[in-house]
Design a protein around this nucleic acid. Sequence first.
RNA 1: AUUUUGUAGCGCGCGA
Length: 338
Amino acid sequence: AFIWNLEIGKCSKAGQYSKALQFFNQMQSEGVKPDKYTFVLVLKACSRLAALEEGKLIHQQVIESGCQSDVFVGNCLVNMYTECGSIKDACTVFINMPTRDLVTWNTMISGYVKCAESQKALETFQLMKIEEVWPDRITFVSVLSACANLAILEEGILAHSEVFRSSCESDISVGNCLIDMYIKCGSMESASRVFNNMSTRDVISWSAMIMGYAKDGQGETALKLFSDMENHSVQPNNITFMGALTACGSIESLAMGRLVHAQVLESKRESDVFVGNCLVDMYCKCGSIEDAYRVFKGMPNHSMVSWSTMLGGYSMHGYGKEAFRLFDNMCQEGWEID
RNA sequence: AUUUUGUAGCGCGCGA
């Protein structure tokens, strides 16, 4: 089995999960019994492929082989079920596990967040502490995003204090999650306090703050941060630019919008459909329908959002005729409304 | 030889 595991492990590392499962089948047809290391690898493959049926069959084999009490195998089963969208099965495995470690709890908590059961995620976090398993940075990424999803500031503040208790506050991912949580809970002030206290900030930290201020109607502050980024030698990405464009739209500053647009062109980001949509939206909000349509027309491909942004811009500014004509074009290109 | 991290992002509408 060892030699097969090496082979399967190689596929897994290379992201070739289907191939890993092929090897697994081949291994069995040659009469080699899989062990717990094999199960860990193939269950991970099932998770990545969201292959529920395969996963269930392997679960059966795990039970037959007596490996189900292994904590690594159990963790992989829990993860496989959550990734396959079967939280109920994940929960059953979780409950029946003889021992649970930190990874087990983290897997279950993130599983709940993934299936939009943030409340359950927080409850599981409580249980974990009762069982005296102490959270780490990975736990907090899930817990804080659960708080963000629920948008309950009090829960977020509680989680923040736990971050300190666990000395995770200097972790950059945790810091970014705290920023995101405070923003989604409506507290830009707390978000900026976290941001300012961070010893290092990455592009995610900056982008989150820029978009946060932009959506909060504080476009100037957002654009100030956008220009500050350079001085901190953090390179903006497409998402950062989307935030800057949102900021221009929120303060209806056509001049700033054009400036950011120029930067978009300079850095060759205009072919990105998301950036394109933001450009269209920005020009609509700044009252320049002509520019909006020019950008829209120039986009290499459109999404449903592109069309509705442009249509919304037309109707907002009283361009009824153009809106109808565009709607016709949209239908001709095969877009359906739902 | 093995497992966990939905941390930032676009429009409109509706609901609360």
